[in-house]
Amino acid sequence: MGFKLLSKLLVYLTASIMAIASPLAFSVDSSGEYPTVSEIPVGEVRLYQIADGVWSHIATQSFDGAVYPSNGLIVRDGDELLLIDTAWGAKNTAALLAEIEKQIGLPVTRAVSTHFHDDRVGGVDVLRAAGVATYASPSTRRLAEVEGNEIPTHSLEGLSSSGDAVRFGPVELFYPGAAHSTDNLIVYVPSASVLYGGCAIYELSRTSAGNVADADLAEWPTSIERIQQHYPEAQFVIPGHGLPGGLDLLKHTTNVVKAHTNRSVVE
């Protein structure tokens, strides 16, 4: 069995187990497998329904001669939608809004960016022009300005110390501490036991640490421990890039980060 097929099978099995364990909360999309990078042309966006009122959005972007996937989250909030992270750029984010209108038909009224990198804030200006209120932590807003990236308009308070959590509509926002970046936030959907790890969490097929220019490698494993301790009931975990899975993604990420750190020390 090929690795790609095995990865998709694991996603399907995880979703099936969740649907059985929580039949009222989960209505997993039966329309197909989780979209992969090879299936999404740059400039297009796919939506994948995880649970009743919960979707991931998947886009792709060219970077350094390669094409990478990027995940975000959409959560229903009454007759409105909360968006977590842009679709990595203005063109993708405009396509995301169009796809949401086509498939869901509810307005996106608020959006949260989970850290300051372009795959999370690139497209904020498109959201703002569409009347979406954009939010991020003060740290993310400051770092985005320093980096020359787009800056969300509103500040999220109460997320300055490791372990801080605040309720934001249908989700809980959690600051686990520094990891992929010093400002990275985690998003949890309690009604569906869905954990969105953003770039602080890796997919299972990833074996290298990737972009760690703004990471705190020493603190990252401790931050992941905080996530595990705060959300032990999480059933569906979405990484910032690639295929979702279960809580095993947290341990896998820790292993990859520690291996990278150990290699760096040896070198």
Rank of each mutant, 00 (worst) to 15 (best):
Y48G: 06
S191Y: 13
F63V: 14
I151F: 07
W220N: 01
I100Y: 02
P244M: 08
E157Q: 12
H115M: 00
A111I: 01
V237Y: 02
A200L: 12
S16D: 08
P41R: 09
D77L: 02
R167A: 12
V54P: 02
Y175L: 01
G123C: 04
Y48L: 14
A130F: 11
R46K: 09
D118W: 06
S22A: 12
T114Y: 00
L96T: 00
E172S: 04
D118K: 07
L10E: 13
T134V: 05
F116L: 05
L247N: 15
R206D: 15
L250Y: 01
L195A: 00
L247G: 10
I186F: 06
G169K: 02
A66E: 15
S264W: 09
A133R: 13
Q103H: 15
L73Q: 02
G78M: 08
L249S: 05
G32F: 15
T254K: 14
P138F: 07
A15E: 06
V265L: 12
D214Q: 10
E267P: 12
P170V: 06
N92F: 00
K251C: 07
L195S: 00
Q229I: 13
I40G: 06
V187A: 13
L247K: 14
L82G: 01
R206P: 07
M18V: 15
G65M: 08
Y188L: 00
L243C: 08
T254R: 15
A129K: 10
G148R: 09
D79M: 11
I227N: 07
E150G: 06
Y188E: 01
T261P: 15
N184F: 00
P41F: 07
S27L: 13
H260C: 09
A209T: 11
S191K: 12
P221M: 10
E39H: 10
A25M: 12
I104M: 04
P244A: 06
L156H: 05
V54R: 02
Y48Q: 12
L250H: 04
V237S: 02
H117V: 00
T86A: 07
L250G: 02
Y175P: 01
G242D: 05
S16W: 15
A129P: 03
F63L: 15
F26K: 15
R167D: 13
I100C: 00
S155H: 10
F63T: 10
L47H: 05
L143S: 06
H252T: 03
D52H: 09
R263C: 06
A25S: 14
K102D: 14
S181N: 01
D79E: 12
F63S: 09
D77S: 07
G242Y: 02
G169I: 04
A179H: 03
Q49M: 12
A133I: 13
T86D: 00
A130S: 11
A51S: 10
I17R: 12
A94S: 14
E145V: 09
S155Y: 08
F3E: 08
A218R: 12
D164H: 09
H180C: 00
Y231N: 08
G245Q: 01
